[in-house]
Design a binder for these strands. Structure first.
Length: 268
DNA sequence: ATGTCCTATGTGATAGGA
């Protein structure tokens, strides 16, 4: 089963590029981020006419996630638990049943910039970095709950985290950025410490493998990228991992997203 | 090193997010 993640940066702007990639890559399941659309305005036909089931969790203008699958999507949940006040659409999960069932979580983790810190180094309450750290604490809790349920699961999406220096062309430029600061990296490491596996790093140890290149400053032409789109696998899901790849060439096409798809092949 | 793109508003140019 091929499962992909793709931050499309706007469904309306990607109405050509997304179906073109689906036709070529033929994922069984895909999670999308930054659909930037309310559910009612999502052009469902470009997904459904390709034989996919579709569940969206959108909002006006920003954010928004979706999951599509050739198999039925069961027990769909929208929104990351832990804060009833949070109105940002960044989390969707559903169960897909192949040889066995797997819980698939699609996420768009907050960017976190600009970083605002108090004198003691803690994030300023109510700021964007504070929101990122609080969201990651909720993500940790959700991962713990899923582990306790003993269901195979994966959490895929735009984590807005550069895990290690080798995941950036210019790591020194990101040291103070919310995507690579020590607090952000430590929170990501705490997820791994639960026993989750970074699928890409389990299959590829080479540096210079990126999933995002900024539209600005010729970042793509200079290969000035970062790896911020990740698959974290539960232990039972990791046992099924056959492959994990980045569809880098998608970034060089007509009217691309600033992210490219990442996918795993699982034996189920 | 800020050289771009996307969305909303509202119909042209700005603002905000990334």
């Amino acid at each position: 089963m091929k499962i992909a993640t793709f931050n499309i940066n706007g469904i309306k702007a990607r109405a050509q590029a997304l179906p073109a990639w689906l036709d070529e890559a033929q994922p069984d399941v895909a999670v999308l981020q930054e659909i930037k659309s309310v559910d009612e305005a999502f052009p469902r036909e470009i997904i459904e006419e390709r034989g996919y089931n579709l569940e969206t969790h959108g909002q006006k203008s920003f954010n928004g996630v979706a999951i599509l699958s050739k198999l039925p999507l069961e027990d769909v949940h929208r929104g990351l638990p832990g804060d009833d006040e949070d109105v940002q659409a960044r989390w969707i999960e559903a169960t897909v049943v192949g040889k066995q069932a797997i819980r698939i979580c699609g996420l768009y983790l907050p960017n976190g910039n600009p970083v605002e810190l108090n004198a003691d180094g803690t994030p300023v309450a109510g700021g964007k970095y504070d929101y990122k750290m609080r969201w990651m604490a909720r993500l940790q809790a959700r991962a713990e709950a899923l582990l306790a349920s003993e269901t195979p699961f994966l959490m895929a999406g735009d984590y807005n985290i550069i895990p290690q220096a080798e995941d950036a062309r210019r790591p020194e430029a990101w040291l103070e950025d919310a995507l690579h600061r020590p607090e952000s990296r430590a929170a990501y490491q705490r997820l791994l410490n639960l026993g989750l596996t970074d699928a890409f790093r389990a299959r590829n140890s080479a540096p210079g493998q990126y999933s995002f290149w900024d539209y600005q400053a010729g970042a793509w032409n200079r290969d000035d990228g970062i790896r911020i789109d990740h698959f974290l696998l539960s232990p039972q899901a990791a046992d099924l991992l056959r492959d994990c790849q980045i569809d880098k060439e998608v970034r060089g096409r007509e009217k691309p997203s600033d992210h490219v798809p990442v996918w795993v092949d699982l034996d189920l």
